[in-house]
Amino acid sequence: MMKLSSMLKVVETIDDEWRSSLAEQILERWEYDKKSLYYFRSSANFIFVFKKDGEWHFLRFIEKQERNIEALKDEIDILFYLSRHSIRVAEPVQSKNKRYIEEIETELGFFYAVVFKGLDGKQYEVEELREEQFLLWGRTLGKLHRTLKNMPKNLYLNRSTWKDHLNFVRRILPESEWAAYKELEEISTWANNLSITSDNFGIVHYDFELDNLCINKDEVGIIDFDDCANYWYAADIAFALRDIFHEKVDINHPSYQVFLQGYTIETSIDEHILKDLPLFMRMHQLIMFTKILRTVDIPELEEYPEWLQNLRKNLVNYIQKTRTEFKKLHS
C-alpha cells in the first residue's frame, strides 16, 4: 500500500464527478474515448477506469520511486506468457509510443503508468460463493501454478522474493516494535529451513483473493499481478484464503477442502509444506503490518479531508490490533 501522503496529493486532483486532470494527462499517452475516464480506487497503485472504442480498460499508475522498472517489465512479460498459455488475464495495452510502460513527468512528480484491458465477469465476496465456485477458484489457482512452473526463469528474474519481503520488514520496523521483531526472527528461522524444489517453489500471484478475480460462469479472469513474487506455492494458497482464515487456519474448513480439491485437479501440492499454512499466514501478517506502518506517514490532523481521516483511523486500528497479537505471541 502506498504512503498516505502520496495518496492525498493525487486524490486531491479528483473532482466531484470522479475525474482527474492528472490522470487525463497521464492517459494522453494512450488512445481512449474522451470524457470516459473516472477514478476507481487507490491502494498499492492509483486505478482509473476508462473506455476505448466502447470497451472498458484500466489505467494504473504509481510514483516512480515506488517501483522498480525492471520488475514492471517482468510483470508485462509474465502476463503475455500466461495469455499465450490459455490463462485469462488482463492484457497490457501499448501506448501511442508503442510502449507498455510509460514514464511520465507531471507537476506532482514522475509516474510509471500502464494500461490493461478489462475482463468480463463478477467480483464476488467470499460469503456469496457456492461450493462449485470454491472448486473453480482452487482449480484456477492450480492451473495458474502449473503454467507458472513451466515458465522460463528469465521472465521473472527481477521479481521480489520472500527474502526481499522479510528484509523490507527488517529495514522498516522501528526498534520500539519489539514483539514484531521477535515475530520476524521466528518467521525468518522457519522460512530459511523450508525445503525449496522446482515443484514446491516458484513465481506466485501473491494476492489471489476474490477482489482480483472476475468470475464468469465456469471461467475465471485474473487481474493485478503487480505483487507477483518468488514464494512457495503453498503460500499462495494461504494468502488467497485470508478471508476464510481471518481468525485461524482450519484445514477442516469445508470451503478450504473444496478449494484444495479443485487445486489438485490441476497440479500437485507439497503436503508437508501445506501443513505450514498458519506460518505462511503469520508471514503475510508481518509483512502487511510493516507495509501499513510505512503507509501511515502523516499525523492525525482535522484539516485533512474526511475520507483520509477515516482511512488513517482504520489503518491505525489495524496496526494496534496486530501489534497486540504479536505481543500475545511473544510475551
Rank of each mutant, 00 (worst) to 15 (best):
W56V: 14
V49C: 10
L37D: 10
E66R: 11
I78Y: 00
R60L: 15
S42N: 08
S86C: 05
F50K: 07
E75M: 15
I69W: 06
R41V: 02
V49K: 03
E63Y: 09
K73D: 11
E70F: 02
N68D: 15
F46S: 04
N45D: 01
L82Q: 10
F80C: 12
I62W: 01
I78Q: 03
L82N: 14
F80V: 07
K51S: 06
S86G: 07
D33R: 03
L82F: 07
Y81S: 07
E55Y: 08
R60A: 11
L79D: 04
F58H: 11
L82S: 07
I69G: 12
G54H: 08
Y38M: 06
Y81I: 06
E63C: 12
Y32S: 10
S42G: 09
D74F: 00
R41S: 10
E66D: 09
S83C: 05
F40C: 14
D77I: 05
A44V: 00
E66P: 00
S36D: 05
E75V: 14
H85R: 12
I62N: 04
I62E: 01
R88Q: 13
N45P: 00
L59Q: 11
L59K: 04
I62A: 09
I47P: 01
S83L: 12
A44G: 06
R88T: 02
Q65H: 04
S43G: 12
H57Y: 04
E66Q: 06
H57K: 13
S83E: 12
A71C: 07
S42M: 12
A71H: 03
H85V: 05
W56A: 14
H85P: 01
Q65G: 02
R67E: 12
F61M: 01
F40Q: 08
K51A: 10
Q65M: 01
E55N: 13
I87E: 02
Y81M: 03
K52H: 07
K35M: 01
S86W: 00
Y81R: 05
E75G: 08
E75F: 13
S86P: 00
S83R: 13
R41Q: 15
I87P: 01
L72Q: 03
F58C: 09
L79V: 10
E66W: 00
S86F: 02
N68W: 00
V49Y: 02
W56G: 09
Y32F: 15
K51I: 02
K35P: 01
S42Y: 15
R67Q: 03
E55G: 11
A44K: 04
D77R: 11
R84C: 13
L37N: 08
Y32T: 08
L72F: 12
K64R: 11
I62M: 06
R67N: 04
K73G: 09
H85M: 08
I87V: 11
Y81V: 12
E70G: 04
R88M: 05
E66Y: 06
S42L: 14
F46H: 07
D53N: 11
Y39W: 14
R60H: 15
N45W: 07
L82I: 06
H57V: 02
F50Q: 08
Y38I: 15
K52Y: 11
L82A: 08
S43H: 05
E63A: 09
Y38R: 14
D77V: 01
I78H: 02
S83G: 08
A71N: 08
Y38W: 06
D53W: 00
F40K: 14
N68A: 13
F50R: 14
Y39L: 07
L37I: 08
S42H: 12
